[in-house]
């Protein structure tokens, strides 16, 4: 990873304000010739380059992250039903504002989630940590990660195999509820388990 950073950052310093054939995303400011004259005559001019307004909007081969997930065989219908019915049995964990501490009232429910995962060792779960949209993006991404990690650790402490559990923060980016009310914000301060096989 660091090697990649080395390579790429090293290229920053020698970047020139030129467009390549892909087109510039944002206009390079043109090189300019001084045109301020003291004798009252405009002697030279500066040219705003023609490619100033070109926009690079993707080459068409760019893939969204989802597109890189290799296609999977559909599981048999019985298993699909089972997955969705299992998914309906896991519950979200909720948190206080700016906190990532598992609350007492959620512990029984987390135990049920843990039992479900332990009884179905072929299941994997992605623990998504979410924040309400009050607060700022980077801090909420951090908070979401704390919530996801705290929930994952709690499930592991209850005996779930670490290999079954992955944590990811979604910060304030995917709210469950979009009203500006405390009851809505409370629903968004959550860790959500998405099951897969």
């Amino acid at each position: 990873m660091l090697a990649a950073a080395t390579l790429l950052i090293a290229t920053v310093g020698c970047t020139k304000g030129k467009s390549d054939s892909m087109g510039a995303m944002v206009d390079p400011m043109p090189d300019t010739n001084s045109s301020m004259m003291s004798d009252g005559v405009v002697k030279s001019s500066e040219t705003v380059s023609d490619d100033l307004d070109s926009v690079f909007l993707g080459s068409g081969v760019q893939s969204s992250p989802g597109a890189e997930i290799p296609p999977m065989m559909d599981p048999p219908p019985s298993q699909m039903e089972q997955l969705s019915s299992l998914q309906s049995r896991v519950s979200d964990v909720f948190f206080d504002f700016d906190r990532a501490v598992i609350r007492d009232q959620d512990k029984a429910m987390l135990m049920a989630n843990a039992e479900l995962l332990k009884n179905n060792p072929s299941l994997s779960a992605t623990v998504e940590g979410h924040a309400d949209d009050r607060g700022t993006t980077a801090y909420n991404l951090s908070l979401g990660e704390r919530r996801a990690v705290a929930t994952r650790r709690y499930l592991i402490a209850l005996g779930v195999s670490p290999a079954q559990l992955q944590a990811v923060s979604l910060g304030e980016e995917q709210p469950q509820c979009t009203d500006a009310t405390e009851s809505c914000w409370a629903q968004n301060r959550r860790a959500h388990l998405t099951l897969s096989r």
Partner: peptide, 14 residues
Amino acid sequence: QRDLYSGSRAVVLD
């Protein structure tokens, strides 16, 4: 990272 003039792009930290 994006070079806004050339359009080149890269993952610099993962």
